[in-house]
């Protein structure tokens, strides 16, 4: 702190302004922008929008759509990728998915709880559901909105277990009942060998490396994300698919526990 000097009549605001102004003066002018092509012009508003929506304060963290807890991003092939980083802002995710053309119901439950069974009828839809995860516990899911027929709903439910978080992804036909939380022992999947790169792994729905179960037609998918966020013994993420209804009878499981 500055000791008070009666001679001084400037204020904090003046001094801060002067410091910042000096800082600005030292900064190099930005490199002249490359000629703006049509294509670039077309994509720009979206980028600017996300800049306002999220941080971009740093220019370093662009999360198109959503909040720090998740991201919803459209891909060139018409699919949409959802990244879940924190189990927060479920309603925001629902709204952003609706904006992206996918009706969704998202429920994040408190530890040890799952939604009571039978809250929706599983729908049979054909959509390339891809999922992946990274070593920081972020899970991702890619779906094609066009494949979601009228009356179908993407149902995302996360339950927190002792060492991991289980995110179940299903597709419902018709109405989705409210989630009634019930106590449950969450299946803890066995760890897979650690990966070195910590890259996003991708797993196609219906592949069952561990269980040798044939691809499950149009099943649900379970993404088991890291307990992460510093709760337990380090990042560990896994992805697993099951047939709809939540019973693990076919699907994929993959886990990364690295760093």
């Amino acid at each position: 702190m500055i000791t008070h000097d009666p001679q001084r009549d400037d204020t904090f605001e003046d001094r801060l302004g002067a410091e910042l102004r000096a800082f600005v003066a030292e900064r190099p002018a930005p490199v002249a922008a490359a000629p703006v092509t049509k294509r670039r012009r077309a994509t720009r508003p979206a980028i600017a929008l996300s800049a306002i929506a999220t941080t971009a304060a740093a220019g370093a963290l662009l999360i198109p759509g959503g909040s720090p807890a998740y991201a919803v991003e459209g891909n060139d092939d018409g699919t949409v990728t959802i990244e879940i980083k924190d189990l927060a802002d479920a309603s925001g995710l629902e709204e952003d998915l609706a904006d992206a053309g996918v009706k969704a119901v998202v429920d994040y439950l408190s530890p040890g709880k799952v939604c009571k069974d039978g809250r929706f009828d599983p729908a049979q839809i054909r959509t390339p559901i891809r999922q992946g995860f990274s070593s920081d516990g972020t899970g991702s899911l890619t779906v094609r909105p066009a494949d979601f027929a009228k009356g179908t709903t993407l149902v995302i439910t996360s339950a927190i277990g002792t060492h991991s978080t289980l995110t179940t992804i299903g597709v419902a036909k018709g109405a989705v009942g409210a989630c009634v939380p019930v106590d449950a022992k969450l299946p803890e999947l066995p760890p897979l060998p650690a990966t070195k790169d910590g890259k996003l792994h991708e797993v196609k729905r219906g592949i069952a490396p561990g269980e040798g179960v044939p691809p499950a037609g149009e099943g649900d998918v379970i993404v088991q994300g890291s307990s992460a966020k510093g709760e337990h013994d380090g990042p560990s993420t896994s992805v697993s698919g099951t047939a709809s209804g939540g019973m693990p009878e076919g699907g994929a499981s993959l886990e990364s526990a690295d760093r």
Binding site: M1, F12, L16
Partner: peptide, 26 residues
């Protein structure tokens, strides 16, 4: 959130606003 996101960029440009406070400002 910003602090987390921009920690690196910030390393060499840190201002402690509090150092500019005097008693009147407080």
């Amino acid at each position: 959130d910003y602090r987390r996101a921009a920690r690196e960029e910030r390393a060499n440009a840190r201002f402690a606003g509090r150092e500019l406070l005097d008693d009147d400002d407080l």
